[in-house]
Design a protein around this nucleic acid. Structure first.
Lengths: 164, 164
DNA sequence: CTTATAGTTGTTACAATATAACATATCACA
DNA sequence: TGTGATATGTTATATTGTAACAACTATAAG
């Protein structure tokens, strides 16, 4: 409902771009973007919400009537390995990665109200974080940085107050 | 095994401090640190690893033979509400909070090898993050910042290299 | 004291999330 | 066209977490 107002972007672009880039990267890497994998990726990109594995399972059944949990989890594993999606740890859910070209470890802003998940590079945060980890002599394998709250669009809806 | 070497601190202090402070805060707040809740908190503080709910269930059974999943999850809910423990989202597990006095949202460094979880304030990171969130006009409710990798102690064990 | 009430725990059942293991099918290239 | 690697089908089960309602306990007001 209110999430429609948030889509001030042409979401078709997101989907098309994501799928095109994924297909291209798979070719480059010599891995297979099979029908199932592509369908799962498309379903994840249906909107900017995080999607749960069993929801994906329900949604893919019209296309893949034999689909079982393993079907979905395997596709998700593949898509994650290839860096096409993120797992949102604090939601047990998955979102499409907006930026297949550059880095992968980003800030996720998760709106409790419209449920949209926004990915941000947040270079300064990442820089400070790298420094901190270096100080700690900690060798990073992966990062999960997930912030829950209310996004700008949703606060504006209620308050009609725009801060700077 | 190797985690023993990491304990270059007297862990008794951690436990005692945590339990004493928790008891005191409960009194101040007029909430009850019941036997079950205290036992769960103690079990969580057994070491600096994140503990899973069903492991806690097994461990508490000698003390509370009637314990069921709900027993544990209720205690965990209470301890979290009071800020005595953190949930580690990316592990579906729980750790004791080292700092009951000040802020709560800290950096968690999770070692894949010794499985210790270190909590860090990382003020500069948090500062940069606050700025980023303000820029995004995002109203924070909670943060999960979890870094997986190899901790300083474990890398030293292998390499005998100490960086600065 | 005693009794009302909020808070806590007991108990059963089940929902939601995820993986293991092995059989079968398909792809991609020699 | 056969062969090894990759992907999928299938069954079963492990793991994590909640719902709902009954029974008990602490506490504090009368």
């Amino acid at each position: 409902m209110q999430s429609d107002q948030i889509k001030q972007h042409n979401h078709e672009n997101c989907v098309t771009t994501a799928l095109t880039q994924a297909a291209q990267l798979c070719t480059e890497r010599g891995v297979q973007l099979t029908a199932i994998r592509q369908q799962v990726l498309e379903l994840i990109w249906a909107d900017h919400h995080a999607v749960k594995a069993y929801d994906l399972l329900e949604r893919i059944k019209p296309l893949q009537s034999a689909a079982k949990p393993a079907t979905i989890y395997r596709a998700l594993d593949f898509l994650r390995e290839q860096g096409f999606i993120h797992r949102v740890e604090s939601l047990n859910a998955f979102i499409g990665c907006c930026d297949l070209k550059t880095t992968h470890e980003q800030l996720l802003l998760i709106c409790k109200q419209c449920e949209n998940v926004e990915e941000r590079h947040a270079d300064l945060v990442m820089q400070a974080l790298s420094q901190e980890l270096q100080n700690a002599n900690f060798l990073v394998h992966s990062k999960a940085i997930e912030i829950h709250g209310i996004c700008g669009h949703c606060t504006q809806e209620k308050n009609t107050v725009v801060s700077a």
